[in-house]
């Protein structure tokens, strides 16, 4: 019981360097504190995120994955986030069918100026992960 309440989810964030990563930075410098649960990997564009990254993160024991990029129309490479949107949609929906709680796979659009939104997204996602508990998907005994 005690362990349960002390448990903190681990969230892996793939953040586009042109927008969401800068947004996270801004949140940091403007003291809009976001939960320390997120570990961040900077990617050149949300379109860089391969569904394999998501599966690998879950396999390694992360409780959730967040992919965050520029708003539609704002991608530095024009189309990266549109492609990411399709990939994320099928990954999330397909994994839900296979048996993964959709809360574990999240996506957001966060611009460089949205430090506040970044904090909100991470807070909300972390809260959701706390509710569903640790990721034991790949454990032999669940």
């Amino acid at each position: 019981m005690k362990q349960e309440s002390e448990w903190e989810p681990k969230l892996l964030g793939f953040l586009c360097r042109w927008c969401s990563y800068a947004g996270a930075d801004l949140a940091g410098t403007s003291r809009k504190k976001y939960p320390a649960n997120i570990r961040i990997i900077k990617v050149p564009c949300s379109g860089r995120v391969d569904p394999l990254f998501i599966l690998k993160a879950l396999r390694l024991g992360f409780d959730g994955v967040l992919v965050s990029g520029c708003y539609p129309g704002d991608c530095h490479y024009q189309t990266g986030n549109y492609r990411a949107r399709r990939r994320m949609a099928i990954t999330k929906k397909f994994l839900e069918y296979v048996g993964v709680d959709p809360q574990r796979i999240q996506a957001s659009w966060v611009s460089a100026s949205e430090g506040g939104k970044f904090t909100e997204v991470v807070t909300e996602v972390t809260k959701g992960l706390k509710e569903i508990g640790p990721n034991k998907l790949f454990a032999d005994e669940r």
């Binding site: 539609p72 549109y82 949107r85 994320m88 996506a107 957001s108």
Partner: peptide, 16 residues
């Protein structure tokens, strides 16, 4: 091919 293409109107109700 499906995944090399996109529409600006593709569903995104799952994105925060």
């Amino acid at each position: 091919p499906l995944m090399t293409h996109y529409e600006t109107t593709d569903p995104e109700d799952f994105i925060k």
